[in-house]
Nucleic acid binder design. Structure first.
Lengths: 251, 251
DNA sequence: CGTTATTTGTTCGTATGTATC
DNA sequence: TGATACATACGAACAAATAAC
């Protein structure tokens, strides 16, 4: 007699949940019991459906939810895998991306996705203390850790102070040092807004995450030492790949 | 001739996206163009499917994603509605839930979901600086704004200092004042960890959100004025209903 | 370099369950 | 109670990405 790795719960209480929730629970139980380990490949969907005595769509719903919970990871055409945990992304008042990833032992990369000069919408203008419609330099960056996309950062700066910011950044490849090239040194984060949602199609594509994997959205205003806003940073993190840690003591 | 409120994009570039993404885009476009406003009810799924010339399942996928993006809201048996925006939840070093919601003009409510004394797991013990397995008082609270569930807060406290915390809270109905009853006044938040994911079945039930609507998870350690950890607060927010704002200046 | 098998992704079909009014 | 609207579940077929040959 063989003991199956995946099987639906049989206790009558579980019958209250829909089938796809019970399938979700079965897969999670197999992982938590160590019957499948981090990085392991799951059986293909049709086989999982057979083992659980249910339909492939039901399994897909369960798997999709576990992807969104950060438990599984799907690679199309290859298979479904048990996810490795997120990287802790430590935030003080001045800490920046590269230091963080280095601390986690990750090789960082950055790529310019898009760059343009556009008129400021009302809300951005308010944060940057410029006029609505005033031109802004915008720069969308994809930052990676060990070649895995981590965050899309969209930076907006007033064009009057930072006209050729994008060109300089393309050369310098560091936000902090590009600001330094304008003699802006030691800027700090003022207000920060954090929210979470499912990704837009573009975000899902940029971050290479599935449509059901949430993003963590981080919008912060940076001010120079005179307190003047220099930049609005709207960053969208692949939530399953990071953990944001504020350490109030180290600020 | 009638102009339809919902219609699939026809430009050839759009053909690259799957049908459900195009349907998602159509619904979003109708909202952004003001053809349907905040709080309005959408046509039923079968009718939307007809208008978009596609299958009901395709529409459901689109709607589900927009629910996760905070754009729509589903009320089972009643209909699908355009969501109203999130409440801004302002966080300083000491600010607490009730003040925040009052500032947003919301009537707050709190209900005890679960309460128990349990042994500390390794990680919680480390945060609270107690021994692994040492007993903790745990208290799960559901906080509401205008009767809408906002957050499930799970508090853990060492039992040796706060033995009858749950009973006192049931009477006092305020975390701050319950701590004050132990002569713990003016405690502050030390480290905070923020992440986002899809809800567990229990969280989805507690918060009355759909399985595809992300939660924002907030874990913080509070310390008394001597720097001793008094409590671990693991709070799960319905992401579509709040925005968390850190104001570094007001801390 | 194409071909094929494997695996996940999309789409439509059909039926039934369940909450709300 | 009946009508309406969302939720679950199984079925069938094909598309698209990947890997192995």
């Amino acid at each position: 007699m063989t003991t199956s790795v995946f099987s639906l719960p049989v206790d009558p209480e579980a019958q209250l949940w829909p089938l796809w929730r019970r399938a979700e629970h079965s897969i999670l139980a197999a992982i938590e019991a160590g019957r499948v380990g981090a990085g392991d490949q799951l059986p293909p969907e049709h086989q999982l459906a057979d083992e659980l005595g249910t339909h492939r769509h039901t399994v897909r719903r369960a798997v999709e939810t576990l992807v969104g919970r950060g438990v599984l990871e799907i690679r199309r055409g290859r298979g479904t895998y048990v996810a490795r945990g997120p990287i802790s992304y430590r935030i003080g008042r001045q800490s920046r991306f590269t230091q963080n990833m280095a601390a986690a032992g990750c090789r960082t990369g950055v790529r310019i996705l898009r760059s343009a000069t556009v008129p400021a919408d009302a809300e951005t203008a308010r944060w940057l203390q410029i006029d609505t419609g005033a031109p802004m330099v915008t720069l969308a960056l994809l930052r990676t850790g060990d070649d895995v996309p981590i965050v899309v950062a969209r930076h907006s700066m007033p064009v009057d102070r930072f006209a050729d910011f994008a060109e300089r950044f393309a050369e310098i490849r560091s936000i902090t040092r590009t600001f330094a090239s304008y003699n802006v040194v030691g800027y700090t984060r003022k207000a920060t807004r954090i929210s979470a949602r499912l990704p837009t199609p573009q975000e899902a594509g940029d971050l290479a995450i599935s449509a059901s994997a949430p993003v963590l959205v981080w919008v912060s205003v940076n001010v120079d030492t005179d307190g003047r806003p220099i930049n609005l940073d709207a960053s969208t993190f692949a939530a399953s790949r990071v953990d944001i840690v504020f350490d109030n003591e180290e600020q």
